[in-house]
């Protein structure tokens, strides 16, 4: 399982009502249903992913979150999730507002563009970083709003969003060294962390 998902699971209460925005094939919701007996609902736009969710017996709604969540009422979910999707939405600030309206708490995970490798890539090569984690070119990338940990926290201050928990850590995708949390990640997360996991509320 992806390391950001392992971290965020601990912040979800048993029997919680969970909305997963951009839920993919429903692996996380399925896991949470089995482990924590949550009542989950996924939102997805990819046809194959939606069929995958339905095949697992999960509830999933075909909907583009860029158009908002107006069909969901205020505070109707305990936790709203947005994993590795913030950077792909048209207006991250709008999506965040909507999440905080619909959910009592929200968990957001995103790749940190402030990581030293990204900084070095841009500084030394003068090109937008391409890595295993973010394998797209600038022109065909679905990730249209990359941000750094600092950018995200600034937005939280501006929007008066309260950070309950956060973890920014080093994760090497595809290696056994996943979810490493070293002392330097804590001291300078925006430089040493690749994966940000934020638990927020209003």
């Amino acid at each position: 399982m992806r390391h950001d998902l392992i971290i965020l699971k601990q912040w979800i209460q048993p029997q919680a009502r969970v909305l997963d925005l951009g839920c993919g094939d429903g692996a996380l919701l399925d896991d949470l249903a089995n482990e924590k007996n949550i009542s989950g609902l996924g939102v997805e736009i990819d046809a194959d992913n939606i069929t995958g969710c339905i095949g697992k017996g999960l509830s999933v709604i075909e909907q583009d979150i860029d158009n908002g969540l107006s069909n969901f009422s205020d505070n109707s979910f305990d936790t709203v999730l947005l994993t590795q999707t913030l950077q792909a939405v048209r207006r991250p600030d709008f999506v965040l507002e909507e999440m905080l309206r619909v959910g009592k708490e929200c968990i957001i995970t995103f790749p940190n563009f402030g990581h030293w490798q990204a900084r070095c890539y841009l500084m030394l090569r003068g090109k937008m970083p391409v890595s295993k984690m973010m394998p797209y070119n600038w022109y065909d990338s679905p990730n249209i709003h990359f941000c750094t940990v600092k950018d995200f926290e600034n937005l939280c201050v501006e929007k008066k969003i309260k950070i309950i928990h956060k973890t920014v850590q080093m994760a090497l995708v595809g290696t056994k060294k996943d979810h490493r949390l070293k002392w330097y990640n804590k001291i300078w997360p925006n430089f040493f962390g690749t994966h940000a996991v934020y638990h927020v509320t209003r």
Partner: peptide
């Protein structure tokens, strides 16, 4: 679908 979500029912929509 919106009414079903409001009633906290398990619903899938395509």
């Amino acid at each position: 679908v919106q009414a079903l979500i409001g009633a906290q029912q398990a619903v899938s929509y395509v």
